[in-house]
């Protein structure tokens, strides 16, 4: 019985319906059931992250074992992962929580993760600009419109824009509040209609690809 898809489909239906009903009837017993379900959801969802981590670390272990190309960097990844987890455990024992201001775990966050992540994202400024130059060269009306809007928005957000014309920041604000908002809203409506359709199909058991 467990081998079939019947029970999982029923669980999806039941949990999905509880979530929907408790939104409209947030009183007992649905409110409490929703609270418990959300708690369970966050616990179970975390295990999916563990699966992902297992897959990633496993892959790099295999690369290391086979001495594949760039195996040294796989070692760096595994050591970085292990060191962070070990420091987290040690600092939890020392301070009661790894997130104490004086813990080395917080230092890892402040002096490794923050600079690395923000530098990585800032690096994208150069690549977005060069990729955009190649992709959006003003070949036709649409590409020209995109380019001009991007330039106006960029100039309107810096002091230089106000130096060029005091109307530029106001025009940028108008672009953001009116045409940009209109298209964003249209796209958002489409996305939420699509999400609604897919969610209902999954809850009713019509869409089952997630179980394969």
């Amino acid at each position: 019985m467990l081998k079939g898809k019947g029970i999982p489909i029923f669980i999806t239906f039941l949990v999905g319906m509880i979530m929907i009903i408790s939104f409209f009837i947030p009183h007992k017993p649905f409110g409490d059931i929703e609270k418990i379900s959300l708690n369970w959801y966050s616990i179970i969802a975390g295990f999916t992250m563990l699966l992902g981590v297992d897959s990633l670390i496993g892959m790099h272990f295999r690369k290391l074992k086979r001495k594949d190309e760039n195996w040294f960097f796989s070692l760096v990844l595994i050591l970085g992962f292990t060191a962070t987890v070990v420091v987290g455990i040690i600092e939890t024992v020392r301070f009661g929580t790894a997130f104490d201001d004086k813990s080395y775990f917080t230092y890892i966050y402040n002096y490794f993760i923050v600079p690395l992540q923000s530098t990585m994202f800032s690096l994208l400024a150069f690549f977005i600009a060069s990729a955009a130059y190649r992709a959006f060269r003003a070949r036709n009306f649409d590409a020209t419109l995109l380019l001009i809007t991007a330039i106006i928005v960029m100039l309107g957000r810096v002091p230089l824009g106000e130096q060029i014309s005091p109307y530029l920041p106001k025009f940028t604000e108008w672009i953001m509040q009116v045409p940009q908002m209109a298209a964003k809203r249209g796209i958002g409506l489409g996305i939420s209609l699509g999400a609604l359709g897919v969610s209902i199909r999954i809850i009713l058991g019509i869409e089952r690809s997630y179980l394969s």
Binding site: M19, S37, F47, I203
Partner: peptide, 16 residues
């Protein structure tokens, strides 16, 4: 499939 069904059910139920 059981935990996956639970996570998917809760996720879709919340999104409706």
């Amino acid at each position: 499939r059981i935990p996956i069904a639970f996570v998917v059910g809760a996720g879709t139920g919340l999104s409706v």
